[in-house]
Design a protein around this nucleic acid. Structure first.
Lengths: 209, 209
DNA sequence: CTTTTGCCTAACCATTTGGTTAAATCATCT
DNA sequence: AGATGATTTAACCAAATGGTTAGGCAAAAG
C-alpha cells in the first residue's frame, strides 16, 4: 500500500523519529519514556512498536543518525579545493552552525557513548570514520613538510579545534548561569567565536614570514 | 549512638555515597538503579532509604559534591600570589589533574544540568560561583589595563581554557576509538597537553615585547 | 459492493523499580 | 545479664514502564 499523508503531511514514522530524537537527546536512553515519545509525536504508544521493534532499536536508529551528523563537519575539512587556512575556517564555521542549530547533539552522543562504548563499534562499523581521520592527518602532515605550518600533532590539532567549537555548546546552561546571558546574547557570543577560534588556531599554527 | 566502624573500616553512609557517585556518574540519574547502588556498596537496598530520604535526595547530595569539585580549580586561579602566566599554567594543570583522576565528573555534571537546569539554582544557591567568575574577570581586566596582555573578553578566555582542558576528557571514548590509543597512551597524551594548552593560550594572550 | 490491506486505538499484561515494613542483630549503657 | 536504641535484613507493595493484542477504520483492489 501507498502511505497516506492525508492530514499530517508528514508520515507517522517520520513524526516518531523526530519525537524520539527530541526526547532521547534531551533525556538520554534511560531517561526517555516511550510514552513521552508517543505524546511528543501525538500518536498512540503502540505505534512506536508498529514501526520499530522496541526501544533499543528506535534508539539505535536515532543514535546512528545523530552520531553521523556530529561527525559530518569533518567531511568539509577533508574534501574540496581549499587552502589549509580556509579549511580550518570552514570547519569551525560549519561545526558551530550545525551545533547551534542542534545544541543537544554533542552531549547526547558523548554521554551515550560513555555509558555504552559498544555503540561506537556498532554504529561506525560501516561508516569510515577512521578513514576521515587519516585523511585529516595526511593534510596536516603535508602542510608541515611544505613548511606552511609548524610541527604539530595532528590529533591534538583536531581535538583543539573541536573542543573550542563544541564545548561552548554543551556547557551553555552552566555558562549562561555563570555570566547571566540570555539566549540571544549567548547565540551571538558563540557566533563571534567563529572568528576568534579560527584566529587562535591559525595564529598558533602558521609560520610568520 | 556512636557509629560502628567494626569490620568495614568505613561507615555505611560513606560506602553508599561512594557507590552512588560511581553509579550516578556512569549512568545518570535515570539510568542509575537503586539496586545497582546497593550492590556496588555491598549493602541491603533498604539501607539507602535509612540514610537518605529517597533517590532524588541521594542524587542531590552526590551532584552537589561533584559539581563543587568540577568548579574547584577556579579557586586556584583566583587565589594566591602568582603572576598571570603562572595562574593560567596552574589552572590548566590542576584542571587536567582533577579530571584525569575522575574522568566521569564533567560529563555527569554537564548532562544532568542539561536535563534539569533547576539543579544549578538549587546547588549553587549558597556557593558563590558568580563571585569567583567576577574575581576572574577583574584579574583579566587588570592585566589588560596594565598592558600585560592584549584586549580579550574574559568570558571567552575562561571558556577557551576550560574547553581545551575538559573536552579531551569527556570525548575520551570517541577519540580513543578514532585514533586507536590505549588507555596509557591517552593518559600521556592528555598529560602532555598541560604544556601545549598553556602555550596556546599564553602565546595568544601576552603581548610580545 | 465486498474484500483486502495497511494504519491506528484502547485496553491489557508482565516486569522492573523505587520505596516500605516488621522483625532481627548488634553494640552500648546500667 | 537485661534494657535500650541504632543498624541491618528479607519480604513485600504500589506505581511506572516497555511491550502486546484484539479489534476498528479507511482507502485501495477486486
Amino acid at each position: 500500500m501507498v502511505k497516506a499523508f492525508s492530514m499530517s503531511e508528514v508520515s507517522t514514522q517520520e513524526r516518531i523519529k523526530a519525537a524520539a530524537a527530541k526526547v532521547f537527546t534531551m533525556k538520554g536512553l534511560e531517561g526517555a519514556r516511550m510514552q513521552d515519545i508517543a505524546d511528543e509525536a501525538n500518536i498512540n504508544k503502540a505505534m512506536l512498536h508498529y514501526y520499530f521493534k522496541n526501544k533499543q532499536q528506535l534508539f539505535q536508529v536515532i543514535f546512528e543518525e545523530k552520531a553521523t551528523k556530529v561527525f559530518s563537519a569533518l567531511d568539509l575539512f577533508v574534501h574540496g579545493e581549499l587552502s589549509f587556512h580556509q579549511r580550518i575556517s570552514k570547519f569551525v564555521e560549519s561545526q558551530i552552525s550545525i551545533f547551534s542549530e542542534f545544541p543537544t547533539l554533542p552531549l547526547f552522543v558523548l554521554m551515550e557513548v560513555r555509558k555504552n562504548p559498544a555503540l561506537l563499534e556498532a554504529t561506525f562499523r560501516n561508516i569510515p570514520l577512521q578513514i576521515k581521520r587519516s585523511e585529516f592527518q595526511s593534510l596536516v602532515e603535508n602542510e608541515i613538510s611544505v613548511g606552511n605550518i609548524r610541527k604539530v600533532d595532528p590529533q591534538e590539532l583536531l581535538l583543539n579545534i573541536i573542543a573550542l567549537c563544541v564545548y561552548p555548546i554543551i556547557a551553555e546552561p552552566i555558562f549562561r548561569f555563570l555570566s547571566d546571558m540570555d539566549e540571544i546574547e549567548y547565540r551571538s557570543f558563540i557566533n563571534r567565536r567563529k572568528d576568534t577560534i579560527t584566529a587562535l588556531i591559525t595564529n598558533d599554527l602558521f609560520i610568520k614570514k
